Simulated assay, not measured.
Amino acid sequence: MAHPERRRLCRFARRRAGVALSAPGSPLAAVGAVARLLNSSAGTEATLAAVAETLRQALPADSVTLWLRMPGTVAFGAVRAPPLPGHAPAVDRLDARPADGESLRASVEHGGVRFGILEARLPAEPAQVEMLAVAADLLALFLASLELTGDLAGEVAAQWREIEAHRRFTSLVIDSLPVGLYVVDRDYRVQIWNRKRETGTQGLRRDQVMGRPVYEVLTRQPADQLRAEFDRVFDTGEIQQSELEVTRGGETRYFRLSKIPMRLDGDEISHVITIGEDVSEWRGIQGRIMQSEKLAAIGQLAAGIMHEINNPLATISACVAAIGGDRSAPPDEYLEIIDREVGRCSRIVDGLLDFSRPKATSKGPVALNRLVEETLFLLKHHQRFKRLEV
């Protein structure tokens, strides 16, 4: 498609001439031909060479030379019709070029910027001078349009490079995170999958998951449950946290999952960021701390428990003495008392041992009444809870 600025060149030429460009072979027809060339889709070098040749034939002139500033330099190069063998030498200053009586010159400038000069070797006549001036104005607009297009293209390229640099930086930051991270859109399709996710327990490469529905990628959870978790974030806009237990190769790992709403444009939630953090070591440390607290509690309970055991031991001792002192008395009654008190001691010791042992975390239904009774049984041996009644 022709550049809008170039289409304006034809209208400019018509206004400058003030008459229709209809007479074949006339100077105005030649200016029209120049305007059409500048409005074509040919390359810049070919277009300028064609313009020079068209002006040489229309003037007519022995030669037409267009001196233009060369890109990236202060020198001026030549586009000549007919072309000279080899390359025309460049000049540093157009004003330093000698003028002769058989050359016409028109400055090619626009908006205070001089792009070069248009030079033709022929006797000066009013019509030819006017044609050369109009052609120079058209060339100036054409070259200004090219320069503007080049500036815009350079600016767009610079902005694109900056955007790419930011994208690479952001991608590097996401890949450097020590947590697994992925992002899904409203259609539950994976849009981001960082390196930690690639090396995680499932070990799925980025090119295997990008654009796929997340419930087809993460199959440890039922698809309906996974969709419901994302829907809750999309609907409420609240951060959702949960824990996931994964067993692989006989090893159990624990992960804390955080689903975070993301708003790309406006107030509507467009994506959900999911961060998975391996908290297995933290769980282990937490378990060791709890065990230490249990041992400290056992130390505090020890005195009360020893007193509690002494009572049944005293009863047992009295029963044994009674049996030994009066052999005629039936021992069944005393044996029943001894058995009851031994059972009492065993329950106290077993409860203490059960409390002190480290236990693996497991989830399941429990009898709350029994749990409360066992807790109260241990607490009643502590000095602070002796008068506790429930």
Rank of each mutant, 00 (worst) to 15 (best):
E238P: 00
I239L: 10
I239P: 08
I239G: 05
Q240D: 14
S242N: 13
S242L: 13
S242I: 07
E243D: 11
E243V: 14
V246A: 00
R248M: 13
R248S: 15
G250Q: 01
E251F: 07
T252E: 09
R253D: 08
Y254M: 12
F255A: 05
F255H: 11
F255I: 04
R256H: 02
S258N: 07
K259I: 00
K259C: 05
P261T: 00
D265E: 14
G266F: 00
G266S: 00
D267N: 13
D267C: 05
E268T: 10
E268R: 14
I269F: 12
S270F: 00
H271T: 04
V272T: 04
I273Q: 07
T274P: 04
I275G: 09
D278Q: 07
D278P: 06
S280Y: 07
S280E: 06
E281V: 09
E281I: 01
R283H: 13
R283D: 09
M290Q: 14
M290T: 12
M290N: 11
Q291T: 05
S292N: 12
E293I: 06
K294V: 10
L295S: 05
G299D: 12
G299F: 05
Q300H: 11
L301I: 09
L301W: 12
L301K: 08
A302C: 12
A303R: 15
M306K: 11
H307N: 11
H307I: 07
N310H: 13
N311L: 14
N311R: 15
N311I: 14
L313C: 02
L313R: 04
A314P: 01
T315D: 07
S317F: 01
S317I: 05
C319M: 09
C319Q: 14
C319S: 12
C319R: 10
V320N: 00
V320K: 03
A321H: 12
A321S: 13
G325I: 08
D326G: 08
D326R: 09
R327F: 05
R327V: 13
P331Q: 06
P331A: 09
D332M: 01
E333F: 02
E333L: 09
E333K: 10
Y334G: 03
L335C: 05
L335S: 04
L335R: 00
E336D: 13
I337D: 05
I337W: 05
V342C: 11
V342H: 10
G343F: 07
G343L: 14
G343H: 15
R344W: 10
R344M: 11
C345V: 15
C345M: 15
C345R: 09
S346E: 15
R347I: 08
I348F: 07
V349N: 02
D350S: 14
G351H: 02
S356D: 09
S356G: 06
S356Q: 06
R357G: 03
P358F: 09
P358E: 12
K359C: 03
A360E: 15
A360C: 02
S362G: 07
K363Q: 13
G364A: 04
G364L: 06
A367Y: 10
A367C: 10
A367K: 13
L368R: 05
L371C: 06
L371P: 02
E373Q: 14
E374W: 01
E374N: 13
T375R: 11
L376T: 05
F377T: 09
L378D: 02
L378P: 07
L379E: 04
L379P: 01
L379K: 04
K380Q: 14
K380S: 11
K380C: 06
H381Y: 12
H381I: 06
H381V: 13
H382Q: 06
R384P: 00
R384E: 15
